[in-house]
Each structure stands twice: as C-alpha cells, then as structure tokens.
Amino acid sequence: MDGQHRFWQRALRFLSLGIPSGNVPSALADGEHSFQQEMWLRTLRKEQQKKQIDMSMSLDEVTFMIIDMETTGFSPQHGDEILAMAAAKTVRGAVKETYYTLVCPEKAIPLHISALTGITAKDVQYAPRLHEAMRSFLSFISGGVMIGYHIGHDLSFLNHFLWTHYRTKWAARFFDMQPIVEMVQRRWFPTLDDALGHYGISCERRHTADGDVWAMAELWAQLLAELKRNNIETLYDLYSALGKR
C-alpha cells in the first residue's frame, strides 16, 4: 500500500470514528500526506464540527444529503461501475447546494446502460476516474444525513469503493426514502416513479443522477411536511416510527 492509500485509509477511519479534531493531526503526522490532502481533511473536520448530529435534533435542523448514482449494473462485486454521482444539500426541504460529476469507468459502457442513462463513451472521455471523483463527492456529503430512494444500491457502490481502497465503510447516518413514503401513505411504492407519480412530481431527466436528485429533493420537501403533520419532528421520532412498520 503506497503513501496515498495509507493517508486515505487513516483519514476515513478517523472521520468515521468521530475522533476529535485535535487528535487527528498528531495521528496522521508522519509526513506522508500532501498539503492538498491536509486541507481536504481539515475541511471535513470543520464540516463535522459544524454539523453535530444527535437523535434529538429537529428534522428542520438536520442537513439531509440527497444522493443518486448511475451505474453500469447492480453489483460492484462483479465489476459494475459508477458512471455519475449527484447530491443535493437540503435544509428544511430547500436545496442549498448541489454536486454532480460524470465518472470515467475502467470498462466500456454497455449499450443498454447508455440507452437508459444517456451517458456514452464520448461523455465520460475526459471525466475523472472514480478515486478522484469520490474524493470530491465524500467532501460534499460530509456532515449531513444521507438519504435517497433505494439508497442501498448507492451504498453498495460507495462501500465497495471504500472497502476496496481503504478497508473502511460508510459509518454516518442514512435513510432510505422508500419506507418513509410507504409509512406516511400506508401503501406500497416499489419504485421512485411510483412515488413521484403519487405526489405529482415530474422528472424530465429520469435515470440521470442530477435529474433524479432534483426530483427526490421535491419529494423530500413534501415528505417533511407530511412527517410534521404526523407529529414526527425529530430524528428519534423518525427512527421510532420506521421501527414500528
């Protein structure tokens, strides 16, 4: 394992474990990380300090990071890859900042995936490789609660990357939007299309990472209002309500 990988392995472990910021520099002070890496780590620490999350926090106080990834398939363990990543930073259901990047895969994009997502080999020719894109993606989503529809798919690719390269996994809080929709509506919503259709939300750029994130942001704003009407006002309330399903 080279110095670059050692730095990232240790940095991600410290962040996932919530090591106080004062302890991190001494733990990493072995001269193997660059100035840019130190600045990145410092930024993540500041974000975590500003966004301390506990179960008693009002849902209005929590920064929710809505995420979506476009991939070449469903199994990173069998060689499927990430083609695009998008995220929206939301507070009280309002989008405050967005992130989007294409990713250049190691293998050719299957034709049926290009047909579904609109992403072709030409589109990703000059896009960053995953290790570079993931660095900026992780920086963006740090300090918030991650949420998405069928988020297990996105987490499987995120965790495969983190485990393959740094022997760590995503440790921060996250929610799947699907069971939240089903809880408040008391019916089954197997796909994002079903949920969007129920709430009258259009998504002209469906199956694009940024298009889906914007649609989910609209959905999340409506869900927050419904949660409040059901007296679900804190993270604890939400976890408890989902646990009773």
Rank of each mutant, 00 (worst) to 15 (best):
Gly3Leu: 11
Gly3Glu: 11
Trp8His: 09
Gln9Ala: 06
Arg10Leu: 04
Leu12Tyr: 13
Leu15Asn: 02
Leu17Ile: 06
Gly22Ala: 09
Gly22Thr: 04
Ser26His: 06
Ala27Phe: 04
Leu28Thr: 00
Glu38Gly: 01
Arg42Lys: 15
Arg42Ala: 15
Arg42Thr: 15
Leu44Cys: 15
Lys50Asp: 15
Lys51Asp: 14
Gln52Asp: 14
Met55Ser: 15
Ser56Val: 09
Met57Cys: 13
Asp60Gly: 11
Asp60Trp: 13
Glu61His: 11
Met65Thr: 09
Ile66Ala: 13
Ile66Lys: 12
Met69Ala: 15
Thr71Phe: 10
Thr72Cys: 14
Ser75Gln: 15
Gly79Asp: 12
Gly79Ala: 11
Ala88Cys: 11
Val95Arg: 01
Glu97Trp: 02
Thr101Pro: 02
Val103Ser: 00
Val103Ala: 03
Cys104Ser: 07
Glu106Tyr: 03
Lys107Cys: 03
Ile109Ser: 04
Leu111Ser: 13
Ile113Arg: 05
Ile113Pro: 05
Thr117Glu: 06
Thr117Lys: 09
Ile119Leu: 09
Ala121Lys: 11
Lys122Arg: 12
Tyr126Trp: 09
Leu130Tyr: 08
Glu132Phe: 03
Ser136Gln: 04
Ser136Cys: 06
Leu138His: 00
Phe140Trp: 05
Ile141Pro: 05
Gly144Ile: 02
Met146Lys: 02
Met146Val: 14
Gly148Phe: 02
Tyr149Trp: 02
His153Arg: 01
Asp154Gly: 01
Ser156Lys: 02
Leu158Asp: 07
Phe161Thr: 04
Thr168Asn: 14
Ala171Val: 00
Ala172Leu: 01
Phe174Gly: 06
Pro179Thr: 10
Arg186Gly: 07
Trp188Val: 06
Phe189Pro: 09
Gly197Trp: 12
Ser202Gln: 15
Arg205Asp: 12
His207Val: 10
His207Leu: 01
Val213Met: 07
Met216Asn: 06
Ala217Tyr: 10
Trp220Lys: 01
Ala221Leu: 03
Gln222Ile: 09
Leu223Phe: 01
Lys228Asp: 08
Lys228Asn: 06
Glu233Pro: 06
Asp237Pro: 10
Ser240Ile: 11
Ser240His: 14
